[in-house]
């Protein structure tokens, strides 16, 4: 119904059933979130208002709901993939996401203004 972007290092095969091969580099994750994310009332990072969940060595954020796409989440995924070589997957829909499918925000500002 909605789609999530999950970034991580996975074993080969169907992303829905793949295991985490190694955890993401949290130094890179945290730096990118400092650059791109806002914070909710509890101080947790959000991208376009959607919470970023860091658990089990992967990062997860809402991507698509209805006809809305979370471009800030795409930007985070693209930068994280470029810096760490991680995979970008839509686990619940068994899809590897080619970075070419993601637009990100380009030159538009994100972070606090991206909510």
């Amino acid at each position: 119904m909605i789609h999530l972007l999950t970034m991580g290092h996975f074993t080969p095969g169907n992303p829905k059933t793949a295991a985490v091969e190694k955890p993401l580099d949290m130094d890179v994750v945290n730096r990118l979130l400092t650059e791109l994310a806002a914070e909710d009332a509890a101080g947790k990072p959000t991208l376009d208002g959607a919470p970023v969940k860091l658990k089990g060595g992967v990062a997860v954020v809402a991507w698509k709901a209805g006809l809305h796409r979370n471009r800030a989440a795409e930007e985070f995924a693209l930068r994280l993939q470029a810096e760490t070589g991680c995979a970008i997957v839509d686990r619940e829909h068994s899809q590897m996401i080619d970075p070419g499918r993601l637009e990100g925000v380009g030159d538009h500002a994100v972070g606090r203004s991206g909510g």
Binding site: M1, I2, H3, L4, N14, K16, T17, A18, A19, R91, E92, H93, S94
Partner: peptide, 25 residues
């Protein structure tokens, strides 16, 4: 579809996923 969270069982309901539903090959 296969639910990796519960022993790779084939299941119509995947309790750990949070998207409402999903589609697989």
């Amino acid at each position: 579809a296969l639910d990796e969270s519960f022993g790779h069982r084939e299941a119509a309901f995947h309790p750990r996923e949070e998207t409402g539903g999903g589609i697989s090959p």
